[in-house]
Design a protein around this nucleic acid. Sequence first.
DNA 1: TATGAATGAGCGTTCATTCAT
DNA 2: AATGAATGAACGCTCATTCAT
Lengths: 197, 197, 197, 197
Amino acid sequence: MCPRTAEAYEAIREASKQKIMQAALEIFARRGFEKSSIRQIASHGGVSLGLMYNYFKSKEDLLIAICQKSMQDVQASFIEADKGRTAKEKLERLVASSFEILAQHRDFWQVFYSLRSQPGLKDLLPESFQLWHKSIHVQLKTYLSELTHPNPDAAAWLLFATIDGVAQHNIWEENYPLKAVLDELLKTYLEDSYAAT
Amino acid sequence: MCPRTAEAYEAIREASKQKIMQAALEIFARRGFEKSSIRQIASHGGVSLGLMYNYFKSKEDLLIAICQKSMQDVQASFIEADKGRTAKEKLERLVASSFEILAQHRDFWQVFYSLRSQPGLKDLLPESFQLWHKSIHVQLKTYLSELTHPNPDAAAWLLFATIDGVAQHNIWEENYPLKAVLDELLKTYLEDSYAAT
Amino acid sequence: MCPRTAEAYEAIREASKQKIMQAALEIFARRGFEKSSIRQIASHGGVSLGLMYNYFKSKEDLLIAICQKSMQDVQASFIEADKGRTAKEKLERLVASSFEILAQHRDFWQVFYSLRSQPGLKDLLPESFQLWHKSIHVQLKTYLSELTHPNPDAAAWLLFATIDGVAQHNIWEENYPLKAVLDELLKTYLEDSYAAT
Amino acid sequence: MCPRTAEAYEAIREASKQKIMQAALEIFARRGFEKSSIRQIASHGGVSLGLMYNYFKSKEDLLIAICQKSMQDVQASFIEADKGRTAKEKLERLVASSFEILAQHRDFWQVFYSLRSQPGLKDLLPESFQLWHKSIHVQLKTYLSELTHPNPDAAAWLLFATIDGVAQHNIWEENYPLKAVLDELLKTYLEDSYAAT
DNA sequence: TATGAATGAGCGTTCATTCAT
DNA sequence: AATGAATGAACGCTCATTCAT
């Protein structure tokens, strides 16, 4: 009753995995990790309850898998952003692409921000998130150094916090004036007034 | 007909209430609202499981009571901050006092930020939080207008996001260079260069 | 702070006891024994939670006390009914007084009937209820014998069941045509047709 | 892709459902609905605590399911009873079948009567029970009309109360002389003396 | 591979009861 | 005599997880 050609197995496995992860991401974003049940995810993904455990050890394991996959996408986008010529252009690109990524992966960011503020869950994704945080700070610091900012380290932290804050306000607040705020952000941080101060 | 006096009972009640609220705040901050159980809170507070229900209708009611109490403290501090003479001084005080409050009420802010990012929980505290959000934006906008900022609305959103972002990074990140970042923040937003641009 | 003349104590005790029993009877009738809480009863009676335990060992003990007191009232009324001259008159009086008692002690009967059908609770009031059941049957059988009923034992059971059934329908059913049914009852059981059959 | 067939699952489901319903009926009858706990039912049925919730939304839902199933059986028996030729025969059959049903579904009737007398629970089964009550009265009234009873409405209420009362006494009283009482009942209500009076 | 019935630890909550005052 | 704060066993219920098929 269930013969399969061997070569089809891997494709089926991958398809099921993706289906489950996509369903889980949507449910996690909509209801939060704690309040999402495995049943809801399975039902939303159109698979059986037990199938999930063929691919993921546990609910937390599923969350980790989703985060790692999404982080890869995000990282890829960031690397793309680094291709500007001048430091100013790079910074502009970085900001612009950050918010494009935010729009494209809204569900993931929703989940990401709620994970980051939930103390218990932060420890689940220890390495990647911490490393990523650091790397963003370093990247920003580099750009600001190239722009001859007098205090690139503190300014990089500040800019990072600003981007983070805007991103979150944009997610939680409806009708957030994102464009105006980003314009203001670039004006504030990219005025070539550093030499003057 | 010789029970305790009414005042004695009131004192006992108030003490127990505070003990429970304090214990709950610590547990909520440490583990998140959803993952905190009544049993953990009771145990941490050194009271029995059922005592909470003498004072709070439910776990959610307890959360609301905690938030309202903490919000009062926070509001009081903010009002204090408004006593500067010039707009610049007011803004400086607002930023300074915000982070003093953050340090003094770390647990509450931890809980606040995790509530705000959890989809379901945002609706629990609808009025006060939303109003507060708005009022901060308005206050910042007023200060920036007084400082003749060319685009006070967008700048107020931006500044708000920055403060929010710094606050969160300061909470999640150990050894966050808060002082340097705040200096940079004030330098960035309080340069009296608005007239010039 | 709480001096009392010794002679007043007993009066106070009795008054409190009655207040509690009356409150409990009303609550039990309205919500059923299981769903009534000690808190509700104390609150309804205007006394403190703990006072009840000065007078009654437990919730069940309170129930028993109420039933015993009410049964005494009921018994007294029944004895009164036995004062007719002829058997026919006695039977008429018994029926009439039964339903008067029912109307006067509605709350008790409500409780009584719900107790009787609740298996666990039947055992709480073991003697009085059983004895009372038997004595009613005997009394009815005597009357019917005097009326030369050919099968007084079965008829007494039947009449008892009828009275019981009418009483319950009258309690649960709104707008129950009690008067018409009782007329019919008397007509059915008191037709002097026994000699004929 | 080789799970059990859909029919196999359905059979398993039905078996478990029946097991739970049967266990619940027995426990409800023995201890009353309120005093019966899900744990007792599960234990008595030899299944796990949570299994009930795979099949029934709640404890109340389980009760409703049990009542509906039992009511169907009861209704079927009543319809059978209506097949007599004369009104007298129909009435005889109705009474006879009522008490056969009572004997066959003793647990259900125990539960039914305790539900009916418990104030809060009466509202749980609103439609079917109320309708059924009415329909019995109507049916009895019809038979009595056909028997040219001078006051069929009151007599129908009376007969209904009698049947109800006998049924309950038969349930609560051990060694109840049911046969004799029923004979007496039929004699009382089926004497063809209506024309004479 | 895929299914979903079954489990049971743990949750929020209630409430009869105790006891220091 | 009277109070009500405090207790904790037990409740109905949820849900991540297991496993026979």
